[in-house]
């Protein structure tokens, strides 16, 4: 048996120490070991996007990432998206306004994906948003609302930057 491994993960700007087996995925470490359950498990095999988090600023799937691989990286989850004073991120706010979800289970992954999508510059048109958000499945079928929310948030972010 492989020995347990002690590691520190930087999540949402805070350091978390944990001792786990190397086979523990980042997703399970977040949900089962660290109590950060905002990141969701929908398939656990890279096919739904519910577990999307940011590692060093890029959107990745936590279910196919070993926690140990994220050592020394900067991890951001849905819990770390709102500002310190609890003001919602522009994407979170737009998701509420556009009713871009129903059951809410894919939503954290959608939002983390959308934040990255806008930052990557892939929110230029509805068609582009649809394609670059296609890795996040929504069984409630809130896709129209998601596109509208990403479009609106992108406009607000660009407006604020201008």
């Amino acid at each position: 048996m492989a020995s347990l491994r002690s590691m520190e993960l930087e999540i949402n700007g805070a350091q978390y120490a944990l001792t786990i087996e190397p086979r523990v995925t980042l997703l399970d470490a977040l949900r089962e070991n660290l109590g950060l359950t905002g990141t969701k498990k929908g398939c656990d095999q890279g096919q739904c996007g519910a577990c999307t988090v940011h590692v060093d600023g890029e959107r990745v799937l936590a279910c196919l990432t070993l926690a140990v691989q994220a050592e020394g990286r900067s991890i951001r989850t849905i819990e770390g998206l709102a500002s310190k004073d609890d003001t919602l991120d522009a994407v979170q706010q737009a998701f509420i306004e556009e009713d871009a979800f129903q059951c809410g289970y894919c939503t954290p992954g959608q939002i983390m994906s959308a934040v990255a999508c806008i930052r990557e510059g892939h929110a230029g048109s509805d068609a582009e948003i649809r394609e670059f958000m296609a890795g996040n499945l929504c069984r409630c079928g809130a896709y129209n609302g998601i596109v509208a929310a990403v479009r609106k948030a992108a406009q607000r972010i660009q407006g604020a930057a201008a």
Binding site: T37, G38, T39, K40, T77, I78, E79, L81, A82, L88, Q92, Q93, F95, I96, E97, D99, F101, G104, Y105, T107, P108, I111
Partner: peptide, 15 residues
């Protein structure tokens, strides 16, 4: 607007 929206977009709705 959806009453539980704020919890859901924060990842704070507890499933």
């Amino acid at each position: 607007l959806r009453g539980d929206g704020s919890l859901k977009v924060r990842g704070a709705a507890t499933y």
